[in-house]
Amino acid sequence: MTIGEVLEHINVEFPDVRASKVRFLEERGLVTPARTAAGYRKYTQVDVGRLRFILALQRDQFLPLKVIKDYLDAIDAGKRPDSLPGGLRLEPKSVSQQLAQELSGHIRPMSRAELQGMSGASDELMHTLESYRLIWPDETGRYDDHSLKVARAAVTLSGFGFESRHLRPFRIAADRELGMVEQATAGLGENSGVVSKERVTEAAREITQACLSLHAGVVSAEIADMGD
């Protein structure tokens, strides 16, 4: 297949993906299509499955490409790599069958009532999450799967006695982290080209993943000390 035919295959699942995105993934060594004698890229169904796997993990898990590449490199070498963040253990060929079950899933936008029904959030909790801008609707008044994750986490915390006032620090912490990400990626965005934007987005993913790992590591260590 040509790159145009590949985009036709994945357009329903990933309508925003353009040829520049596929070439960027090739540049990073995640997709390696064959080349004709004239140098034109030729993709196979295996390449398409691998591409869908990468795009799904980026979209649904917000994983940086380095994490995905290390995982794929291990699979390509015939190894059984450690599970991905979140405990996922997938292979490119299994995406079509397991995505809905093992990935969080990229669900359709939800109404407020649907979000409350799926998360168990009360009207009061919804108001708190929105007032602190931990969740927010799009221009049509609907919520995405990120809002669902936040709402479910907030419901869990409330079950352990967390009150509304305890949620505001999460917004403050997120703003601080976003500020650091923007500062760190500022130089990468000087070129307005699409590839440059892809690099900025990917750098933001890597920084975010590192921040989450650092935070989890420090907190886990302190919790371990609590048990001693």
Results as ranks from 00 to 15, higher is better:
Ser83Ile: 14
Val67Tyr: 01
Ala34Gln: 11
Ser83Trp: 13
Pro64Leu: 10
Ser83Ala: 15
Ala74Met: 01
Leu51Tyr: 00
Lys79Ala: 15
Gly29Asn: 05
Pro85Glu: 10
Arg59Thr: 07
Pro85Ser: 10
Phe53Ala: 02
Gly87Leu: 04
Phe62Pro: 04
Lys66Ser: 11
Thr44Met: 06
Arg89Met: 12
Lys69Asn: 10
Asp70Tyr: 02
Ile54Asn: 06
Thr44Cys: 07
Arg35Asp: 11
Leu63Glu: 00
Arg41Met: 14
Pro81Asn: 08
Leu88Pro: 05
Tyr43Asn: 08
Thr36Gln: 13
Ile75Lys: 01
Lys66Arg: 03
Leu30Val: 05
Phe62Met: 15
Ala77Phe: 00
Lys79Phe: 11
Ala38Leu: 14
Val48Lys: 01
Arg28Ile: 01
Val46Gly: 15
Ala38Tyr: 09
Ile68Ala: 04
Arg50Thr: 07
Ala37Val: 15
Gly78Asp: 08
Leu63Ile: 06
Gln61Phe: 08
Val31Glu: 09
Leu30Asp: 04
Gln45Asn: 15
Thr36Met: 14
Tyr40Thr: 10
Asp73Met: 09
Asp60Glu: 12
Ile68Cys: 04
Ala74Tyr: 01
Phe53Met: 00
Val31Ser: 10
Leu55Asn: 02
Gln61Ile: 05
Pro81Phe: 10
Gly49Val: 05
Phe62His: 12
Ser83Gly: 15
Gly39Lys: 05
Arg89Ser: 13
Gly86Ala: 13
Gly49Lys: 04
Tyr43Gly: 09
Ala38Glu: 12
Leu88His: 03
Tyr40Met: 13
Asp82Trp: 14
Ile54Ala: 10
Arg28Ala: 00
Leu88Ile: 14
Leu63Tyr: 02
Leu55Asp: 04
Leu30Lys: 00
Thr44His: 05
Gly39Tyr: 07
Ile54Asp: 08
Ile75Met: 11
Leu88Phe: 08
Val48Gly: 09
Arg28Gly: 04
Arg89Val: 12
Val31Arg: 03
Gln45Arg: 08
Leu84Gln: 06
Asp82Lys: 10
Lys69Phe: 09
Asp47Ile: 02
Ala38Met: 11
Leu30Glu: 03
Thr36Arg: 06
Ala38Asp: 13
Gly39Gln: 07
Ile75Pro: 05
Pro81Val: 09
Pro33His: 11
Leu51Thr: 02
Tyr40Ile: 12
Pro64Tyr: 05
Asp70Asn: 12
Ala77His: 04
Ile75Tyr: 09
Gly78Ser: 07
Arg59Gly: 08
Thr32Ile: 14
Lys69Cys: 13
Lys79Trp: 08
Pro33Gly: 15
Gly29Trp: 03
Thr36Trp: 13
Arg28Asn: 01
Ala74Leu: 07
Gly29Arg: 00
Gly78Pro: 02
Arg59Tyr: 01
Thr36Pro: 08
Leu72Arg: 05
Gln58Gly: 10
Leu65Met: 02
Ser83Leu: 12
Arg50Cys: 09
Asp47Ser: 07
Leu72Cys: 03
Pro81Ala: 14
Ala56Cys: 08
Ala34Ile: 09
Val46Phe: 14
Arg80Ile: 13
Leu88Tyr: 07
Arg50Lys: 07
Tyr43Ala: 11
